[in-house]
Amino acid sequence: MRALLALLMLMVSAVPLAAQEEQTAPYAYRQLDDPAKEEAAHDLMVALRCLQCQGQSIADSDAPIAGSMRSLVRERIAAGETPDQIRDWLMERYGDYVSYEPRITSLTWPLFALPLVLIALAVLLLRRRFARESKP
């Protein structure tokens, strides 16, 4: 009876240890066989931000989520999807933050237009100031 109880205790305590083993994605650290597809996958991975790390692409990050995203990118490239399709899918899933190349939308166009407006305003103000100083 004690042996059965000891075996049961051992089995119950081994379950959490087995659950803690890290599950790696198949293509997280393994490249595709086709060099052209691997290059397309790598170019996309450099343009995607790791959601866990601060300012690292998924190509540079060692975080588990970055490994999963690298594997996902490689699997989808191998299946025939284009990098733009994969980027769009990831941006729909995680938001615009996941891409280092943001899209211009009705919500983001002011972020791109504001610097141009500020430069034009600075040029106009400097021009008026120097025009006044040059008159006798």
Score class of each variant (00 low, 15 high):
Leu116Ala: 14
Ala3Trp: 00
Ala131Val: 01
Asp96Gln: 15
Glu38Arg: 04
Val98Tyr: 02
Asp96Gly: 10
Tyr94Asn: 12
Ser106Met: 15
Phe112His: 12
Ala6Ser: 12
Gly55Met: 00
Gly67Ala: 01
Arg49Ala: 15
Gln54Lys: 11
Val117Met: 09
Thr105Val: 05
Leu72Tyr: 15
Pro102Leu: 05
Ile119Tyr: 09
Val46Gln: 14
Ala18Ile: 10
Val12Met: 14
Ala40Met: 10
Leu4Lys: 14
Cys50Gln: 03
Ala78Asn: 14
Ser13Thr: 15
Thr82Ile: 02
Gly67Pro: 05
Glu81Phe: 08
Glu75Lys: 07
Leu51Pro: 02
Arg129Pro: 00
Ala36Asn: 12
Tyr94Met: 09
Cys53Tyr: 03
Arg30Phe: 07
Lys37Pro: 00
Ser106Asn: 11
Leu126Ser: 11
Gln23Pro: 03
Gln56Asn: 09
Ala59Gln: 12
Ser134Arg: 15
Met69Phe: 10
Leu48Gly: 10
Ile86Asn: 09
Leu5Ile: 11
Tyr27Lys: 10
Glu101Thr: 15
Asp60Tyr: 04
Gln31Pro: 09
Ala19Ile: 02
Ala14Lys: 03
Ala19Asn: 09
Ile104Asn: 01
Ala36Lys: 13
Arg87Asp: 14
Glu39Ala: 15
Ala18Asp: 05
Leu121Val: 14
Asp34Thr: 04
Ala14Gly: 06
Asp96Cys: 00
Gly95Ile: 08
Arg2Asp: 09
Tyr27His: 08
Leu126Trp: 07
Val98Glu: 00
Ala79Ser: 15
Ser134Tyr: 06
Ala66Asp: 10
Pro110Thr: 06
Arg70Ser: 01
Arg74Asp: 04
Leu8Gln: 03
Ala79Glu: 14
Leu126Phe: 08
Val117Cys: 04
Asp43Phe: 03
Thr82His: 05
Met11Cys: 06
Glu21Val: 13
Arg132Phe: 04
Arg87Ile: 01
